[in-house]
Amino acid sequence: MKHLLSTADLSKDDALLLLDTAAQMAATQSRAIKKLPTLRGRTVVNLFFEDSTRTRISFEAAAKRLSADVINFSAKGSSVSKGESLKDTALTLHAMGADAVVVRHWASGAPYQLAHAGWLDAGVLNAGDGTHQHPTQALLDAFTIRRHLAGRRGGGDPDGVGADLAGLRVAIVGDVLHSRVARSNVALLRTLGAEVTLVSPPTLVPVGVETWPCRTSYDLDATLADWRPDAVMMLRVQRERMSGGTGGAFFPSPHEYTRYYGLDARRLAMLPDHAIVMHPGPMNRGLEISAEAADSERAVIVEQVANGVAVRMAALYLLLAGDPSAEGNDL
């Protein structure tokens, strides 16, 4: 694996290798000394064109626990309106000898361009691009789902290691239109055999969604009651979607959104006993998710964060040490 740009690029074997490697990484994280020597001497650059403290520190922790040298490069702003171009930034990182570049960018496709434009030799790891993809988020979500639910089918590893997600049902609820998390999850969950229903107000479903390998619904109550999801993933609603400003509001009011699409105590009670509640964070408590839901025993939201480090360790490991002949290539 040279780059990790989109979950749509992952075969089932690729995805399982990532998840199983993440499980090995997670096992090392319960040790008193969490640091592994695996990527000693390698340089990982966190290139962030958009603020995301959570994602950046997760990647930073992952790289540091593999003993890589980490350089954080915050390059906010558009390449045209201010400062350096994406190309010059890439050439700079290349000249500095970056082995992997973790990139977060406001523009869909920027990681793809970094990987393919010939500006840079390093492996590119997409840490979220525009409204396109956020593959490590989907991987950590799949990892979390597998840990909780794949073991239920009996046989095999209790944490689901080696297993896919066949037969599991995942409802993804909220702003699908602008969500790279939703796009990444739809592709990956399908590859792993799960069924997905997207639940959104019609204004927040992209035109063209009909070709996606999933169901869509405008009715959260019906989805919970009739479809019986094993996991419910709530998406963050951005404040700017609510205003009637330039783009026009996507729904009439926050209250109305919460009334029809928020996960509250009543809807929480509709879930099957084993079902889990997920959120990629940061949450808008009281909007897409109530405090009861966020703090309930079903919520695995904090665990998602922990699993994020393990999944990102796995991704960096497979990107940088995937060659079995490489030095220090053992866990």
Partner: peptide, 24 residues
């Protein structure tokens, strides 16, 4: 203009998938 604010490419199957704002 109002239907194309921020639009980047034709709105349809491809824009939905690759995450570029659609131009209906």
């Amino acid at each position: 203009p109002r239907l194309t604010e921020g639009a980047q490419m034709n709105e349809g199957v491809v824009s939905a998938e690759i995450g570029l704002a659609g131009w209906p």
